[in-house]
Structure formats: structure tokens, C-alpha cells
Nucleic acid binder design. Structure first.
Lengths: 212, 212, 212, 212
DNA sequence: CATGAATGAGGATTCATTCAT
DNA sequence: TATGAATGAATCCTCATTCAT
């Protein structure tokens, strides 16, 4: 999709373009993001951006598809690290999520906006890709946990995947946008949240339905 | 804010106006919602809508402030119903949430869009009001649970409020927008989700930190 | 033009309507004046105002035609007061102008706006009426001054009328809108301005061209 | 304020845009001027005008700030011309005013509308700038006249500035909008008006108050 | 008579996109 | 290849006026 002309740009300029555009999408979502503002802040011609990416959607696609693959990498690394127990991998997955949010806060903001905005372009494709990868990853973890005896043999794997995903996804929201839950807890620090999450999972999974 | 002229309209027309506008906001969020589309679907003049509500924000305020008070009512009813145990009240609260989502799906869609869209007008006010009411309600429930001996006496109430709120809020997301977690679980029915939620809470609360 | 229904209103309400409308025209001119704002401040129905005056122009006509006749009255009184010299009458005319401005500041503001706004409705009629009355009045004064020997017999009466009118009109501007000349003189009080005006006229008229 | 894009336009087009817009403001004032009419007459897209000037006020600012500096230039030239007496400079100032009005009648019409229209944007800034420049100029002239002995040494300079400014400003009104005084004088030609003005000043200044 | 709901043309402004230079 | 001027549909909003109740 992206034209060669963008790939041939000097690294520094290429990064500036992506950063500025990512910020714009993170702050305003898709439709309310303004190409005008982006090129104005960048100090480049409007036509250039369209040469690089074809149109607004092309720009967004370029940014977010890279984000998706960046998000997948650490999960693979955890999965492929030998010698870890199931709950250690879960905990590391959670921490990997927080690290991604810390490293790319604007990309996560875009993701959150996309979650509930049905008109976000490419929404189905991107969300499907993220969910699919996450589910596949969790399924492998859970199956490993069953093999290792850390999880009950009769566990309904699909239901466990569903629950794990929901819990991890939603708790990451609270981590990324503390204001969501603020005013509620005096000071819910990351370790405290992680401990609460771990406790929930450790006990909760025991009650997840088993296959009939 | 609302001009009298709207309150004086025939009930049926008033409801049509609110329904159509609510749908528009639910589908497109605030900025991308179009007054033009609303009046076109309603078959009324553009000026009329502005007479009713002053401006776009006035229309949104009218719709959503009613939603907020509609959301608070059932919680009060549960709190004031005598003879219920703590976990029964929690379960009923969860069901009240699902009933609200079922009765006003578009209002809940607006809420979800507002959650992560920092530019939503009146966002701080409305979210603050909702969170405040919910927190106060949960605090009363928990304190009652402690008095009744159903919860440990040393429980850190504020942290419990925080955790309960986060869990209930996030699980309601999954209920309202099943596509969020779909593709993951084959068919996570409401009772199943409710059971999973209950299990999490029952075990999880035991591990919530106690006051030092 | 004005319907009977307005004349039949209670005095107090009638006056409120006129005052509020006059203020609106004075502040915003004709086109920028808003019927909406007027009825809003009055707390009466929009339809009523249209019943009273037919349309916006009818309202303005009612207001300003009364202003014109109010402006003419004191001039007639000065003219008909016996035993005054020419320059005394001129000075009193100037003071009558300042009194009118003090008594009806908003009407004078409307007049000033109308002066240079070619699109003011009824402008030609009203300005012509005012100028005609003023010219006729000044002509009578000057002819009296010539008869009394206070002005040279060969004075070009029409040119003197022109000059007197221009001077009085323009100096009244400075009186009504002091900010026009402020920042220039430290504190040009009314008596000082009156003295300067008198001096100018006393000497200036001696040089006004005489009929060839 | 003005974007580069306008400065890069071909001279002829740039001039057409400014002329058409100036005419619109001159005919209708600020608020009643219509961007729609301007672009329609120009045959360009609405968006283009906003690209050039940002918004309506930017367009007006561009036009009128140039007018202000155009108005100042000839005054500086007169001041810096050696070998002229005080009254010669005054007469030339008056003629410079008439020349400006003749060369830019529409700009002067805008100025007159701005004088009494409190809602004109940038009114305070522009009027202040014009009055300040004029006052400074007149002050220099008068101080020169006092040095040369053409004006009494005890003259209250500030009061003389005030009076001169008021007289020149108001007489220029009559020159620019003859209809203001028409119907009064049969045919007040420029030389006749100039002579009348000169006479007034020559005699009048002698009576301007001297410092205490 | 008084009311005020309904109208719809017109206001300024923003926007993604195109294309000649 | 990069530019940025041009576009025109769409945005929210205001207004004087009409007319059924």
C-alpha cells in the first residue's frame, strides 16, 4: 500500500512523520484526526503525505499494522522461553502488556478508541488480528499448563481463553488510563494491581467451567 | 439548558427526536454525529432542533444526563431492598447493569465511546458523576458486608471499591459488545458470564489487601 | 404602519418594548440587530412583535420616526423664543443637541450608525428629513441674524447653512462618542468644547463666502 | 496572519481578490459582508479564501492594516518636506486626506463604518493606531509652528492637537460622503470647502486655550 | 389576540483529496 | 519527487418570518 517514496525517506524524517501522525490519531481518533494539522506540524506539503500513503486510510493502515506486529513479538518471546510455569508466563504476559503501553502509549490509545468505534476503518481486520493472535497465544499457554498439570485436565480450554483474554484486556485498560478508575482507589500502584490481578486469576481459573 | 419548546412537544414526537439523536450519537460518537442526518431522518427543519436544545452539545447533554440518572435509579433500589446478603446485592448489581444495557443499548454505546475519547464534551463531568455514584454505592455495600460479617473486618474498603468497580465495569463491556471477546469463546452466555464473574469476586475479594 | 394592538398596550409594557428594541438597534445597527434577542429579553412571544409592527423594518420605523420628531421639537422652541440674539440661538442649539444626546443616547447611536451605513433601511428618508428640518431651522436663524445686523447682509445664506450644519453635526459626534477624540486631548470637557466651537463659529462665519 | 499561499498568487489575481473583498466590506461593513458573495464574484472556491486568510477577520485585517500604513505614508512625506510654513503643511495635510479618499474610497468607507460600529473587529486597535499616528504628526507640526513663531508660544499644544484632529477628521467626512451635507449647500466644491476649513483654522486657532 | 413551534435559506468554517507545476 | 493552490461538500448554527392553536 505504502509507496516506495516513503520508504526511501531519511530515517529521521520517516520517524517524525509516523510519530506526528500517531499522536494525531491517538488524540482525535480516526475521523476527527486532521491531515491538515499533521502536515502543518510536520512542515511538509500536504501532497507529500498523499504521495506516501495514498490517502488518510493508507496512513492509518501503515501505522497500525506495524503496531499490531510490534504487539505480537514479545508474546512470542515469552511463549518460546523455556522453563517457565504457566502462572509465570501469565504474569509476564501481563507485564509485557504494560511494557507495550509504556513504550507506545499513543498506539494503545488508538487501540482503545478503535475498540468501541464501529466506524474506525479497518477495525474488523485489526481487532480480529489482535484477538486471534492473543487467543492463539493463550491457548498454547493453557494447553501447556494442562500438560504440566498446573491446570485441571478437564478445563474447558476455549472458555479459559475467553476469560483470560477478557481479564487481561480490561485490566490493561485500567493501567493505561488510570483516570478510568481513579477517584476510586487512593493510589492503586502497578504492583498492587498486578497482585490483585494475579490473585483473581489464580483462584478464578479454578472455577472456570470444565468441559461437560 | 433545554428550552421549554421541547418539553411542550407531543410525547410521541419528543421520543422520536430523542431516539433518533441517541442512535446517531451511539453510532458515530459526538463529533462525527451529524445534526444534518438527524433532522433528515426525523423529517424536521434544522432550526427546530436548535430551538429545542440550543446547540449540539445541549442535545447531547439532554440525552446523556437523563441516561446517567436512569442508570443510578436501580442501584438505589438494590441498596434499599432489605434482607439481602452482600453477594446477592453484588449479583443483582451486575444484573441491573445488564438490564440497563439491554434496555438502553445505545446509551451504553455512547458511554463506551466516551470512555476513551478525551474530546467528548462534558466527559469529565459525566464520567465523574457515574464513577462517583457507583463508588459511593459500592462503598455502602461493602461496609454493610463488613458489618454483616460476610467480608473480613480488616478489609481495605477503598481498594475493594476500586477492584469491584473495575471488574464490574469491564465485564459489562464484554456483555454489551460481545464482539469484543467473540471469536474467543464459542458462546459465552449471560449466565455463564455471571457465574464466572461471581466466582472471581468470591475468591478474589479474599485476597484484596487489608488495611495496614 | 404600526398596528392598533401595540397602541392599546399598557404604557409600561409599550415603553419596555421600545426601550429594549432601541437598545438592540443602538448596539448592533439594523441588520445585526436580532429580533430573537429582543423578544428573549422582553420575555414576550416572537409573534407578538410581528403583530405589533409587521416586520423588523416596521419596528425600526416606529422607533426612529418618533426619534426624528423628538429631535425637532427643541429646535422649534428655540426659534420661537423671542428676544434672543443670533449667537445665543446658535449656542442654545448646540446645547439642545447635547441635551438630546444625553436624554436619548441610544437614538443618537442609531443615527450615527445610519450615517455611514448605506444599507440601513429608510436611511434616505430619515436622513433627508433630519437634514431638511435642520437646514430650514438654520436658514431661519441666519436670515434673522442678517435682519438683525448681526451677520453681514451679503452673506451667502445657503453656504452658511451648509457650514453651520456640518460643524454642529460633527462636533456633536465628538460629544456623543468621546472615545473618538480621546487619547488626543487630556480632558476636553463639555464647556471647553463648547467654547472652542463658539470661537470657531464666531470668527469662521465672518469668512464664509458672500454671494457674488 | 496571512498565509504564504496568498502572497504567492499572481499579482493580478491577488489584486482582484483584495479589490472585491474591499468593496464588499465597504458596502456592507464587517458582519453583513458575505464571504459567499465575495467568492461568487471572484469565481473561486470558498475554501481558497480561507486558505489565504484563515478566516473572515484575517481577510479584513489584511486589507485594513495595509490601508492604515498607506494612510500614514503621505503624512510623513509632508512632515519631512523642508521649507514649508505651518499653515501650508496643514493645508497639504488636508489635501493628502482628500487624495487618500479619492484613491481608496472604499477603504475610507470602511473606516467610517468602523468609527461608530462598536462591534467591528479590531476596531480598538486600528482606530487607536490611526489616531495615535495622526496625533503624533499634528503635535510635531504644531510644535514646529510654535518654534517658527507662526503660532503663539503659550498655545496649549495638546488642546490644539485635539481640535485640529477633530476638525480635519470631520471635514473629511463631508468630503468623502457629500450626500451627508447635500441638500444643504448647492454645490460645495473641494476648493470652497478647503477655503472654509482654512479660514476656520486660521481664526480658530488663535482662540484655542493657552496653557494655564 | 397572543403564542411559540416550524421553517429553510444563509452564515462562517473545515476537510480530504486532486493535479499542474 | 515534492509542492501547495484549488476544490466543494459538509460541518454547526442563526435568522426573520409565518401560521395553526
Amino acid at each position: 500500500m505504502t509507496k516506495n517514496t516513503f520508504e526511501n525517506l531519511p530515517d529521521e524524517k520517516r520517524q517524525r512523520v509516523l510519530d506526528e501522525a500517531t499522536t494525531e490519531f491517538a488524540e482525535h481518533g480516526y475521523h476527527q484526526a486532521s491531515i491538515n494539522r499533521i502536515v502543518e506540524r510536520l512542515g511538509i506539503a500536504k501532497g507529500s503525505l498523499f504521495k506516501y500513503f495514498g490517502n488518510k486510510q493508507g496512513l492509518f493502515e501503515h501505522i497500525f499494522s506495524r503496531a499490531v506486529s510490534d504487539f505480537k513479538k514479545p508474546l512470542k518471546a515469552i511463549r518460546d522461553t523455556p522453563g517457565l510455569g504457566f502462572f509465570e508466563r501469565i504474569e509476564q504476559s501481563f507485564l509485557a502488556g504494560t511494557r507495550f503501553v509504556d513504550a507506545h502509549p499513543n498506539l494503545y490509545r488508538i487501540y482503545l478508541k478503535m475498540l468501541f468505534n464501529e466506524n474506525f476503518p479497518l477495525r474488523e481486520r485489526f481487532l480480529g488480528e489482535i484477538r486471534g493472535a492473543h487467543a492463539k497465544y493463550l491457548r498454547q499457554l493453557i494447553e501447556g499448563g494442562v500438560r504440566d498439570g498446573q491446570l485441571p485436565a478437564a478445563l474447558d480450554v476455549e472458555m479459559a481463553v475467553f476469560t483470560l483474554h477478557a481479564v487481561m484486556d480490561r485490566f490493561l485498560q485500567g493501567y493505561a488510563v488510570p483516570s478510568l478508575d481513579n477517584g476510586l482507589a487512593p493510589a492503586a500502584s502497578l504492583p498492587e494491581q498486578a497482585r490483585a490481578l494475579a490473585a483473581f486469576l489464580r483462584h478464578g481459573l479454578a472455577d472456570i467451567p470444565t468441559q461437560e
